[in-house]
């Protein structure tokens, strides 16, 4: 009797592992085989989904016979991710992208064992041998969105729904603050953190707290913002500035603009470098190289005054030609 229960438990666990890690395998001809390790899921409407769509765009461009893609989701914990990464490397994948800064150490550990495989992670800047590091300059688009919020706010209170006070979120919030200050020194940017990346309900609560405190512009990063955007949509009368990808499909009347990451350019660069046999590079995503883009929601674009668009355009050009540098916090 007892033995049966253990077998059942093992079956349950195995099913879980299979649903969690079950990759999508496509065409079996040679050429590029790319594995993608994601901290959340391909439908998170943010960080992971934007990268997944970037990879899929490259695959579409190259053709499924030239490029095979496997995806593993929900591997936010670097130790679990390490096991998956090794497995992909053993199975002969040529390029393995671990989409998060937390994977840096685990890649340093694994990469020397597989010199023919190219590994990539980001946000990060330490690249060497067969490790690529990609580095979105999130503060640049944040600055531009800060201009929009700063010029358009009526209450002079702008709320930030942050995840955890670290890395990318600090970069984004710091740039955003500078953008607001540049055009409207009277406006107050209130930066708050939920203490989690994926807690949708908390992000919603925090957004409500901001709106009750009078904020009429909101922004934020990480996959949890889905909750905050929904809360803003329900509340009405406020605008959301989105990051990672265009999130306007969630709330077409709330999301006014978006900083979009063009991951397909990063993925293409890694593939090209790999095929030429080059060593790891530090790949920057910026407005200057076109990997970052500021998009207005076409449905709301008419509500943005021309002077705001002009100011954004001017700052964007200055960022591109280098006359304006959005500062980063000193470490």
């Amino acid at each position: 009797m007892k033995r049966w229960s253990w077998i059942l438990i093992v079956v349950l666990l195995l099913t879980t592992v299979l649903t969690a890690c079950g990759g999508k395998q496509e065409a079996q001809t040679e050429k590029i085989r790319l594995a993608l390790i994601l901290p959340s899921t391909i439908d998170d409407m943010a960080w992971s989904q934007s990268m997944y769509e970037g990879v899929m765009a490259v695959q579409k461009e190259m053709g499924e016979d030239k490029m095979e893609v496997a995806v593993s989701e929900r591997l936010g914990n670097p130790v679990d991710a390490g096991a998956a990464i090794r497995q992909y490397a053993d199975q002969g994948y040529n390029i393995i992208i671990a989409h998060g800064s937390q994977y840096q150490n685990v890649l340093e550990e694994i990469a020397p064992d597989y010199p023919d495989v190219s590994f990539a992670y980001g946000t990060g800047y330490e690249a060497h041998d067969n490790i690529f590091a990609y580095d979105p300059q999130a503060q640049e688009g944040a600055y531009l969105q800060g201009i929009i919020a700063g010029m358009m706010t009526k209450s002079n209170i702008i709320g930030v729904v942050g995840p955890v006070e670290a890395g990318d979120a600090i970069k984004y919030n710091y740039g955003f603050q500078q953008g607001v200050e540049a055009v409207n020194p009277d406006a107050e940017v209130r930066i708050a953190y939920t203490g989690s990346f994926g807690d949708i309900a908390k992000a919603a609560e925090l957004a409500k707290a901001h709106m009750d405190a009078g904020a009429d512009f909101l922004t934020g990063t990480a996959q949890q913002v889905v909750g905050a955007i929904n809360a803003a949509k329900e509340h009405g009368g406020v605008y959301w500035l989105s990051n990672d990808m265009d999130q306007s499909s969630l709330a077409p009347e709330t999301v006014i603009s978006a900083q979009v990451y063009h991951w397909e350019k990063v993925v293409q660069q890694i593939i090209d470098a790999h095929q030429k046999g080059e060593t790891g590079k530090h790949i920057v995503l910026s407005f200057a190289n076109g990997a970052l883009e500021l998009k207005y929601n076409p449905q709301l674009e008419s509500q943005i005054p021309q002077e705001v668009k002009d100011a954004v355009e001017q700052a964007k050009q200055q960022i591109i030609d280098g006359t304006l540098t959005v500062k980063l916090p000193e470490n």
Binding site: S40, T41, D44, G198, A201, A204, Q223, N230, A231, E234
Partner: peptide, 9 residues
């Protein structure tokens, strides 16, 4: 509470 589905709700 947060109407709609999202991963790890």
């Amino acid at each position: 509470y947060t109407p709609g589905w999202s991963e790890n709700i």
